[in-house]
Amino acid sequence: MAEETNQGVWGLVIDLNLCTGCNACVTACAMENNIPWVGEEDAGYGRSMSWINMQRYWEGEYPEVSPSYQPVMCQQCGRAPCEPVCPVFATVHSESEQINLQVYNRCIGTRYCANNCPYMARKFNWFDYAYNIPEPMNYYLNPSVTVRRRGVMEKCTFCVQRIHDGQENARAQGRAVIDGEIMTACQQACPADAIIFGDMTDPESQVSQALRSQRKYVLLEELGTQPKVTYLKGEGYYGG
């Protein structure tokens, strides 16, 4: 049994050259991670629960106006500003998965982590949204993911349930995890293949190859948060 080999560092690369802004990742994430909808009023008020913010910025003036899209989810910072401020260790750094973890049941709802997240990647359950899903629509809820109740913060987990599944399968078969075997829901759905997920320590993995691109940048690098999500600039906006 391949026990206790290096678990690797999970990383996500989003190629903005390929992203069309179609929002399939947003929906896929919601379907995989039991993210409830909040209704028109709350959604418009800024309480939408989607873990991916598809940010759309306009540049220029008509007719030279052009949009740029940037899906922003939890950046899984290495030095996450959200973590130390939680009074009860509800958001912590997972050493074995090298991601930033939200322990729903430990959360008491101070919302400090969300204030301190420069990426605005955290979402709060203002009401029992998920528990109010009418029967039988709650049948599709994913049993691998905790259904969050009111007063709890949540955010992108890099589909840690899928990481666990993949690792568990590999361990049961006595082998290492193969690159590409573990896919996040957004990556799996992305029709443009703009999202790449994998082990950043493996130099051959797709993620590592993508990370060698000159186009790479991380969001708000000046804050020193060491995100695990890397963006590749859209080529239309890139000189080289």
Partner: peptide, 10 residues
């Protein structure tokens, strides 16, 4: 409901 709440990208 989730299609309704998926923002129109533009």
């Amino acid at each position: 409901p989730w299609l309704q709440e998926t923002p129109n990208t533009s």
